[in-house]
Simulated scan of single mutants.
Amino acid sequence: MTAPRTVLLTGAAGGLGTLMRELLPPYGYRLRLFDQRPVETIENAGNAGNAGNAAGEAEVITAELADREALGEAVRGVDAIVHFAGISLEAPFEKILRANIEGTYHLYEAAREAGVRRIVFASSNHAVGFTPRPADGSGAIGVDTPRRPDTYYGLSKGFGEDLASLYWDLHGIETVSVRIGSCCPEPTTVRMLSTWLSPADAARLLHAALTAPDVGHTVVYGSSANTRLWWDLSSARALGYEPRDDAEPYAAALLAAQGELDDDNPEHAHLGGSFCTDPPQWPH
């Protein structure tokens, strides 16, 4: 599959969407931006544009996923979709249902109607959050580990993966579901030494997911090449993903400030970290 010319980026005003608005265009993508909140473009923010197209030059659609007319306009003519839209933390089930479950269904229906053949779905490590934490650096947790969501949020990501599988089997829409770890400029907790996905590696992974041939429905973990990595990245590497970053340079300072992970601490015992507490705590 050649690199898509136009990619719809949902959730473009969110944290990850904002990062990818700058990092994806240099790979040759022209972005169409979709969010229920106004998107502050690079042009409006006063920054220089990137190669390929500046986010300030991108088409912007401000609407909710429940707006079927606006969503139909958003997907029309695009070559692929990167779906980040939705609630990214725990919330009451009714809100998760509307934004993450019904919203993702609306997106897939719009893609089917428009003939879009490739979607990259932002799943989450929280779909398997109650899986016990392995020894640091073992890389033992594969994508075939049973799903054990740690929140309604994690539950919604499991639904999204299954919906993607259904639309591949039923309608031939290919999806790469990325179980994103902790995507931020630098790790801020000891847990993130294992789960960190640098923004630059996130863009590399998305590019691989958008361009790899014959993905059907593929599930991958989204992480950098961390020394303390918990997850098996082989399915991501099979797409052509080659992570270049490692959280280890941040380890000494974080360990000195926070100490080692302790399995007797409920925030440390499972993959989902503080999401596995009642009530869930933040950050990712």
Rank of each mutant, 00 (worst) to 15 (best):
V178E: 03
E43Y: 05
Y27P: 06
P146A: 14
E22Y: 00
I141L: 03
T211Q: 08
I119M: 09
H83G: 13
G86M: 13
L197T: 00
L16G: 09
F159Y: 15
G240H: 02
E102D: 15
R37S: 14
A70I: 12
V75N: 00
L261R: 09
A111K: 01
H217D: 02
A114C: 07
T104G: 06
E73H: 01
T104R: 05
E90W: 07
T189H: 03
E109S: 01
P187S: 04
L210C: 08
E94S: 14
A45E: 13
S223C: 09
I119L: 01
F275D: 11
T2H: 07
H284Q: 14
A114Y: 04
G11S: 13
R237P: 00
R244G: 12
E186H: 10
G158D: 06
H106C: 14
D245G: 09
A135P: 07
S124H: 07
A252W: 05
L239Q: 04
I101N: 11
P279D: 01
G139I: 13
T131Q: 00
E102N: 13
P266C: 07
D246C: 11
A236Y: 03
P279I: 01
G154F: 15
G129A: 14
S123Q: 08
L271S: 07
P187F: 09
Y29H: 15
A257H: 05
L155S: 10
Q258D: 04
P132V: 08
P283E: 03
A238M: 08
C276H: 12
F121N: 07
I141T: 11
P283L: 15
R30M: 03
V7C: 05
L163R: 12
T195M: 08
A58K: 04
W231S: 01
A251Q: 04
G46V: 10
P149K: 09
Y250I: 00
P280A: 05
R32E: 05
T218W: 07
V82C: 02
I180V: 06
A80H: 14
R5D: 14
A238H: 07
F34L: 11
M20E: 15
E64Y: 12
A253C: 05
H83N: 08
A51Q: 05
L210D: 05
P280H: 06
L89E: 14
R179V: 00
S177R: 02
P187A: 02
R204T: 09
F121H: 15
A74W: 01
K157I: 11
D144A: 03
V176E: 01
A63W: 00
L239K: 02
G216R: 13
L24F: 15
E40H: 12
L197P: 01
